[in-house]
Design a protein around this nucleic acid. Structure first.
Length: 195
DNA sequence: AACTGCGGGTCCA
DNA sequence: TGGACCCGCAGTT
């Protein structure tokens, strides 16, 4: 195993991370790097990148996918696994012709609340499509800081649509808040957001 | 309130 | 032994 990385070495438009041979679990990672990868928000597949330790997005271990922290009992390597995407159970079509693809809440409790809400478009139930892209289990992302570099490795191919990016979700949340503007008691009409 | 990372702990192959 | 996952804690946004 672990030779899955050799796939497309041919079209070497590849990243810095893929030009080198390394694994996130290696005792020694490549040193004295002269070049880094630009941050990749939507990684997919069995890929590796090497970011600069100065890259803000890499520092925050960001991803477009909704990734939650996973305890791997290794304080050197941060591991995250994908939560999938929240869709309308009826698969309704939005006015722009697209489908609802909400970002699953990262916090367990918040996600349970989220799943009880209804589709903001057609009021059908929401459905969480779990990620099964890594041999039946969620896609995993690994982050490891070493020297002036942040090493990133992903395992698995997402088998579901993309959720809203984090920034999109935050933008929507704050716009809803602005519209409703802190309701003290609102017994009715709290199905969309906020609580 | 929700996000993020940590780490103790369980279950299972 | 390692991976998936649950849970609570704590600091941050």
């Amino acid at each position: 195993m672990s030779r899955a990385d050799q796939r497309d070495e041919s079209d070497c438009v590849c990243s810095v991370g893929m030009k080198l041979t390394w694994d996130i679990n290696d005792p020694k990672l490549p040193q004295d790097l002269k070049q880094f990868d630009p941050f990749q928000e939507w990684t997919d597949g069995y890929v590796r990148y090497i970011y600069s330790a100065d890259d803000k997005n890499a520092q925050r271990h960001l991803s477009g996918w909704a990734m939650r922290n996973t305890n791997n009992h290794n304080c050197q390597i941060l591991k995250k696994s994908c939560l999938g995407v929240v869709v309308c159970s009826r698969g309704c079509t939005l006015t722009d012709g697209s489908r609802l693809q909400l970002r699953p809440a990262i916090c367990d409790k918040a996600r349970q609340k989220q799943q009880k809400k209804l589709c903001p478009n057609c009021n059908a139930a929401l459905e969480l499509l779990p990620c099964r892209g890594h041999s039946g289990y969620p896609v995993t992302n690994f982050w490891r800081v070493d020297g002036k570099a942040i090493f990133f490795q992903a395992k698995g191919v997402h088998d579901h649509p993309r959720p809203e990016s984090k920034s999109e979700t935050e933008a929507r949340r704050s716009s809803v808040k602005r519209r409703v503007s802190s309701p003290p008691f609102t017994p009715k009409r709290r199905l969309i957001e906020t609580q």
